[in-house]
Design a protein around this nucleic acid. Structure first.
Lengths: 331, 331
DNA sequence: GTGAAAGCGCTAACAT
DNA sequence: ATGTTAGCGCTTTCAC
């Protein structure tokens, strides 16, 4: 349907250049006559045009494309972040290509490589491991912005959230309600930088003995890790805790599943605190505090850091504030 | 770091063509000597290569890229579907570009246009409206596969899920538990093809009067639509229903929010049924039935339909089965 | 066995 | 005021 520039040129008896100049908005600069401009525009109005961005990219050595590597789209935070980032990129004239590494170091490297071969103009990466972040930093010469995980071994800008401050707020909120009772903290993925910060925030607020007596740790942060930690805690207490904190939603899910299994239900008087927010937390009758990420701010900061890097300005790493959400107990 | 073919050629004193032939796996065909092959491979082993896929695409008129247009990534179903599809595309040697239309017809057209200009080899689209599906079908000459919404006005293959059958199963399950009590159905987005099918399934199982007496409808399926429908229902009944069905999760969220607001809690004896599944439904103490989509099967079928279209085979539309999940009531 | 050359559609500098 | 041209890096065909 849509005509290519050379077809338009032939149809109107002008040169391809003339067509391109007019359609490229350079008509005035090269003083193409109004009459010719009108004829071309009219033709386009009727038939449409089809430019080939591939050829343009080859010539300009720039694709107006960014790559984004995240662990998983099934994770609501990354999904929302991707959506926001994609939207802003498009507004700025860039197409975003989203790929999932599945938290695998090798996959992450392959993805980055593939995107570089496609000549993306820049790369956003949520790096799975310290090693892969370092590798990418050394290997890739394109503008890069790291997101969420700061392993502290790159010169590229890193956008993180205020995990430490957020954890302090979250812990303080549930601890106040708990009074003298212990607040147990299930920590999944305890070697990830984000989680380390969350644990640090918790310990900053809690008494000395909390680190040893009230925390449980697991290498990963899946539902089954939450289950396993809750089982350990149950066995230790011989009953359900009164106040429970989880380092992420999957961990909370696992913990609650175990409680339901042992008790037949989730006790309504149990106080809960968790990182990451989800509308469905409102389904629980319990009093709950949660930490909500502000994805729009993340996307904004990420794109800005990328723009700065590309224009050789000093790019700024940034920490995005979180928000504490409180859901009161059912009456 | 990585060398480009011409740099390798110069370094080894051979022609660019020779380098390309070897690295492109065409060495045997053009009888490049083993010795030369070895030298080139060795050099690459040490320094790495960097091909430019942009130039390749320009020459071959094929980008090994597919586009995917969905309403929102924040919707967990589309996020999971995207993840699965992206994964399979990559296995097949394609890069997937995901864009969100925000359910806006104009945006959807623009996105499709942009992707075509980038010379994607094919397009997967979850079309927001009948009009845009028709428009795309008439405008775009690339291989296309439509997902989820079948407006019945395209020759391109459409992958849908068994909304009618799923709705029958879901309705039958809750109706059986409800006995003679009414099962109210909150229908959000009542003019979308998927929702129409769900409503049809409900009516197929329920008695004559259900369509008039037990259903509530809203043009969209957001949380606020669920709230509004629940309010209407409450005002009609003067109390909370005993059995409630929702056409999607946001609608359920809205409905439950209203109940909590009026009652101070969500009554545990309320039976619930909803389309779309989420792990967090387990947070509710209620007896719940839900309909789970099988995203891997979706992705599989979508990619297969695309492959068939591209090889000019007769592409097959396909309906993906859903699964009924039952969560018993807390004890 | 290896190399040279044409051409994909575009941009930008240079002719006419 | 409009047209011509070189070259981006790749594939493919043909020449040495």
């Amino acid at each position: 349907m849509a005509k290519k520039p050379d077809e338009i040129a032939k149809a109107l008896g002008v040169s391809i250049t003339t067509v391109r100049l007019v359609l490229g908005g350079k008509a005035e600069k090269y003083r193409i006559s109004k009459a010719t401009q009108a004829r071309i525009r009219e033709y386009v109005e009727e038939h449409g045009v089809k430019f080939d961005l591939t050829a343009r990219s080859l010539k300009l050595k720039r694709t107006n494309t960014f790559g984004l590597i995240i662990p998983r789209l099934a994770n609501p935070f990354f999904a929302k972040l991707s959506e926001e980032l994609e939207h802003r990129c498009r507004e700025t004239g860039y197409q975003l290509i989203i790929s999932c590494s599945n938290s695998d170091e090798e996959t992450e490297k392959e993805l980055a490589n593939g995107l570089v071969q496609r000549n993306v103009d820049g790369l956003f990466v949520v790096s799975s491991t310290s090693g892969s972040q370092q590798h990418l930093g050394n290997t890739i010469t394109k503008p890069m912005v790291f997101l969420d995980r700061d392993y502290g071994n790159t010169d590229a800008p890193v956008i993180t959230s205020s995990n430490f401050e957020g954890a302090k707020d979250l812990t303080a909120a549930i601890a106040k309600a708990a009074g003298n009772e212990p607040v147990y903290f299930l920590i999944g993925g305890s070697n990830q930088p984000t989680i380390i910060e969350r644990a640090r925030g918790y310990l900053d607020v809690m008494p000395e003995n909390a680190g040893e007596d009230w925390t449980l740790r697991s290498a990963r942060n899946r539902t089954q890790d939450g289950e396993q930690m809750m089982q350990t805690l149950w066995d230790k207490l011989g009953t359900a805790p009164q106040n429970l904190m989880a380092s992420s939603l999957p961990v909370l899910e696992g913990a609650l599943a175990v409680l339901r299994e042992r008790l037949g239900h989730i006790p309504a008087q149990l106080r809960l605190a968790t990182f990451d927010d989800d509308k469905m937390l409102s389904f629980l009758p319990n009093e709950i505090w949660s930490i909500k990420q502000q994805e729009p701010e993340w996307a904004e900061a990420a794109l800005q850091a990328m723009t700065q890097t590309m224009s050789s300005e000093q790019p700024h790493s940034k920490t995005i504030a979180t928000r504490l959400i409180h859901r009161p107990k059912d009456q």
